[in-house]
Nucleic acid binder design. Structure first.
Length: 258
DNA sequence: GTCCAGGTTTTTA
DNA sequence: TAAAAACATGGA
C-alpha cells in the first residue's frame, strides 16, 4: 500500500503545503534548511529516491502490520484503517511541529496555515532558492509580542515567546524528547505556559515521532466516548498515535461519526 | 450577531 | 476539585 498524499498531507499534522490540480507542494524545515517538493499521487514512487523525503513521508515504516493489529481491536478501528489506508505519520522537524501546534490551539487548520506562513515570511530566513524556512526558536524568542500579534497570533503570542525561549535556552531539549520516557517528555513540554496535554502530545507524535503519543482533541473525545466506551489510549498499544491518526481522519472527513 | 476552530489559563463556585 | 469564562481572529 502506497502513501496517500491527500489523506496524509492535509490531515492536520503539518501546516506548510498547497495543492493545485492534484499537485501537492510541501515545505519543510527550519531556517536555511528548508526544502520543498512538488509531487503527484501517481508519482509517489519518486519520493523513495530522495533520502530526505523518504524519511519525511515515513516510507520505511511497516504500516501494514500496524493496521493489521489495529483492525483486530474493533469494527470501527478496522473501518478507519480501511477508509484511508494510505495515511502516514510525517517526520517533521521537531521545532517546527512543536511551535506549529502551539499556534493550533483553539484555531482552525486553514487559519493555522495562514499564520504559520506569515511567521515564515516575517521571521524565517530565506535560502538561496528564495524559500522561507520556519523561523528558528532564537529568532522568535527575540521577537516582540507586538510583532507576533501582527501576524495574527492573538493571545498565543506570549505562548510562542515562552516556548521559543525555552528551546533557545536549552530548557527544552528536543533531541532528548525523542528518547526520554514519554511521561517525562510530556511533563517537560507542559512546564511551558501555553502548552497543555494536547499540544504536548501533538508535538511528540508529529515532531518527535513518538508513536505512543495519543493526542485527544474534540474529535477524538467524541470518538472514544461513542465507539470505545470512554477507554483511554492503552487499548491501542505501542503505536496508539498512529491509530489515533486513522480515527481522527475518519471522524473528521467521512461524515459517519454519530 | 452568534458560533466555532486538532486548547490552555484564569477565574469562579 | 470542578466547571465556566476569557483569550484573538476570521470564516460560516
Amino acid at each position: 500500500m502506497d502513501i496517500s498524499l491527500r489523506d496524509t498531507i492535509p490531515s492536520g499534522q503539518s501546516f506548510r503545503f498547497s495543492e493545485q490540480d492534484g499537485r501537492w507542494t510541501v515545505f519543510a524545515g527550519v531556517g536555511k534548511n528548508v526544502k520543498s517538493i512538488t509531487i503527484e499521487q501517481k508519482n509517489v514512487d519518486e519520493l523513495k529516491e530522495d533520502s530526505f523525503w523518504r524519511n519525511y513521508f515515513d516510507l520505511d515504516s511497516d504500516y501494514e502490520s500496524m493496521k493489521k493489529e489495529f483492525s483486530k481491536i474493533s469494527p470501527i478501528m478496522k473501518k478507519a484503517c480501511d477508509y484511508a489506508p494510505g495515511i502516514r505519520i510525517l517526520n517533521q522537524d521537531s521545532w517546527e511541529a512543536l511551535c506549529s501546534f502551539v499556534v493550533s490551539q483553539n484555531n482552525n487548520i486553514k487559519r493555522i496555515m495562514a499564520i504559520v506562513e506569515r511567521m515564515c515570511t516575517t521571521f524565517g530566513e530565506e535560502n538561496k532558492a528564495g524559500l522561507h524556512g520556519f523561523p528558528t526558536a532564537d529568532k522568535l524568542a527575540g521577537a516582540s509580542e507586538e510583532s507576533l500579534r501582527a501576524v495574527g497570533l492573538g493571545f498565543r503570542a506570549p505562548y510562542i515567546i515562552n516556548v521559543s525561549t525555552a528551546v533557545a535556552d536549552g530548557i527544552i531539549d528536543l533531541d532528548y524528547l525523542k528518547r526520554a520516557p514519554i511521561d517525562e517528555a510530556r511533563k517537560i513540554l507542559m512546564t511551558v505556559k501555553g502548552i497543555g496535554p494536547k499540544v504536548a502530545d501533538c508535538a511528540l507524535l508529529f515532531g518527535c515521532h513518538r508513536l505512543d503519543c495519543f493526542p485527544v482533541d474534540v474529535w477524538m473525545k467524541k470518538v472514544m466516548c461513542t465507539y470505545f466506551n470512554g477507554c483511554g489510549p492503552e487499548i491501542f498499544g505501542q503505536n496508539a498515535g498512529v491509530a489515533q491518526q486513522y480515527l481522527f481522519h475518519w471522524a473528521r472527513t467521512s461524515g459517519e461519526l454519530k
